[in-house]
Design a protein around this nucleic acid. Structure first.
Length: 571
RNA sequence: CGGGGCGUAGCGCAGCUUGGUAGCGCGUCUGAUUUGGGAUCAGAAGGUCGCAGGUUCAAAUCCUGUCGCCCCGACCA
């Protein structure tokens, strides 16, 4: 491709609307443009990256023994009514009507459609296991689309569904996918972690997330320094460990704490460390209020609470409602005299002489002791894991914390959808049985953004070789110089002939402009053809990631480039 | 939906407080001189000031409504 003919409108300045690195750089590099909130247009360079990601995904899904299908974007409401999700899915689903006033939606996911298909077309254990996938646009009317491609309303996803005769079969399919996903992210050259995840609304038995590490990521994960344990903080189990010496219970005391609301303010005022305080929070689960208590220096994990309660809807009560229920506002809540069901984190049981609110504005109790002064309905694992925690798996190592972007998620679904959609088969004994399903997603467009989020510098994107829009950019310093132009054309032709994806910057621009653009769009290799080296029969070959270029004889250029590409394409 | 911010030329912004000829930088077009890290000079094009009402002799500016966008929170690939 010639840069003179390529549509890649690079920008010198950051677009005002873009906050995150990937959004900014993809925009500036002329790879994406916004068409509406959370809806993007892919320009030629951006689309090439997407295609590369898709191709790697496709190859690995095929290699794992699955088959590609094309499912409809527009889906009839009947299927969703059958699974019960038409009512449950809520505002996140784009809904539309046809001219006959029939209800449809834009597919946010495809469990219904695929299970319906399989229920009609597959009837025997002899046809199982079956793994089907597609790569397609998904539509979710996000409450708040943001971060460019990271959380869009229209996005590209690879979704794969497995159908097995039993749990053991599902286990095999799940394992296959786990490995296929690792190969996908390995091949793309991304630094990622596989972590245990919460199953969320999709439901099912087990789940892993594939997290591309990036400090700007939305997901927080913990991993053990001693064993292979890794989990999303939403999921990670917390083992209770006592902190400090277990003191003898002291007499309960009520203290005036004027204006002290936060844990930091209260602990400073009382002269106690935060871990000797506790915070009490009032929540509403499916309309019923309740209170939860965690150590002052910990964070409540709402997902754990939601799972424990088996609640569909959970939110924190606002201050007015909280006051109505407890008699005090935020900052003075505590377990004593509470007229609500109270659930305390496991750690609370190990605490002694702790401080907490008195359910009276500006008053706290000190020397509270669980069992003596208050008794929760239950002690439950409710807090969010954090760095330094004891590993729940090996019980020896300590957890470290990192952030990342969830680019893949695999679930064991079980029979939830096969039951609802009537996906059954005849087994060897003539018995009709439900298929056991799994579902497996990769956010293709999000992966593109995650790759940028992880690979960039002050000059722009640094694409991993495997997903770069072009592998090499050939830059003659001055196209008006015949010698340089001819050398560039010759190298361009030879590289193309050798099957290298090459972009020739034949624009009549100053060298600086071309270098800036090459860096911004992140082409991994650059061949610079300038007067100095050309006089010696050489050109410069520079890796985007490195500062220094190497001098290469003209006739060796193709070989050197191929070697560099091969070295950067991890198996 | 709650909180915060913003809509003025393709992009980034000023002007609005105190109403009175719509401005700057980048980009674009023409010409010249340039050509190894976003050139210089000369000239030019380009804007219903998001939209709709209202106040006023007069509105980008004041008022009301509305639409859209961005950021923070509850959702998720």
């Amino acid at each position: 491709m010639r840069a003179s003919a390529l549509l890649f409108p690079t920008l010198r300045e950051d677009p005002a609307e873009a906050e995150t690195v990937s959004h900014r750089l993809l925009y500036r590099a002329g790879m994406i443009r916004k068409t509406a909130g959370g809806i993007y247009t892919y320009l030629p360079l951006g689309l090439r990256v997407l295609h590369k990601v898709m191709q790697i995904v496709r190859e690995e899904m095929d290699r794992a023994g699955s088959q590609e299908v094309g499912l409809p974007i527009i889906q009839p409401s009947e299927l969703w009514m059958q699974s019960g999700r038409w009512a449950v899915y809520g505002d996140e689903m784009f809904r539309l009507k046809d001219r006959h006033d029939r209800d449809f939606c834009l597919g946010p996911t495809h469990e219904e459609v695929i299970t319906d298909l399989v229920s009609h077309e597959v009837h025997s254990y002899r046809e199982l296991p079956l793994l089907l996938y597609q790569i397609q646009n998904k539509y979710r009317d996000e409450i708040r689309p943001r971060f460019g491609l990271m959380r869009a309303r229209e996005f590209i996803m690879k979704d794969l569904y497995s159908f097995d005769v039993d749990e053991a079969g599902l286990e095999v399919s799940y394992q296959k996918m786990y490995e296929a996903y690792c190969r996908v992210f390995d091949r793309m050259g991304l630094d990622y972690r596989v972590v245990q995840a919460d199953v969320g609304a999709i439901g099912g038995a087990a789940s892993h997330e594939f997290i591309v590490l990036a400090s700007t990521g939305e997901s927080k994960v913990v991993f053990c320094d001693g064993c292979s344990y890794a989990a999303n903080v939403e999921k990670s189990e917390c083992l209770p460990e006592p902190r400090g010496e277990r003191a003898e219970p002291a007499p309960l005391e009520k203290v005036h704490t004027p204006g002290r609301r936060t844990i930091a303010e209260v602990s400073e005022f009382l002269g106690l460390p935060a871990w000797q305080t506790a915070k009490t929070l009032v929540y509403v689960a499916d309309g019923k209020p309740l209170a939860v208590m965690v150590r002052g220096d910990r964070e409540l994990n709402e997902i754990k609470l939601k799972n424990f309660l088996g609640a569909n809807e959970l939110f924190m009560a606002d201050e007015a409602w909280t006051r109505e229920l407890t008699g005090a506002g935020f900052g003075s809540l505590g377990p004593v005299g509470l007229q609500l069901p109270l659930y305390a984190d496991l750690e609370v049981e190990l605490m002694a002489n702790l401080a907490a609110g008195a359910n009276q504005d500006d008053y706290h109790y000190v020397n509270l002791n669980p069992g003596r002064d208050f008794t929760p309905a239950a002690y439950v694992d409710l807090r969010e894991a954090e760095a330094g925690d004891l590993c729940p798996s090996c019980r020896e190592g300590r957890l470290a914390e990192t952030r990342g972007i969830e680019t893949g998620h695999i679930f064991k679904l079980g029979t939830k959808y096969s039951q609802a959609m009537g996906a059954t088969f005849m087994d060897e004994t003539g018995q009709e049985r439900l298929m056991v399903m799994g579902c497996y997603g990769i956010g293709v467009s999000r992966t593109m953004a995650a790759a940028v989020e992880q690979n960039n510098d002050e000059n722009g994107i640094i694409w991993p070789m495997a997903i770069a829009p072009y592998q090499v950019m050939v830059v003659p310093v001055n196209v008006n110089n015949a010698e340089q132009r001819e050398a560039a054309e010759s190298i361009y032709a030879r590289l193309q002939a050798a099957g290298v994806e090459v972009l020739l910057d034949d624009r009549d621009e100053r060298a600086g402009v071309k270098f800036k653009d090459a860096d911004l769009i992140g082409i991994p290799l650059r061949i610079t053809i300038g007067p100095k080296s050309l006089a010696a029969g050489k050109v410069e070959v520079k890796r985007r990631r490195e500062a220094e270029a190497r001098q290469v004889e003209l006739e060796r250029v193709v070989d050197v480039v191929r070697e560099l590409i091969a070295a950067d394409l991890t198996p």
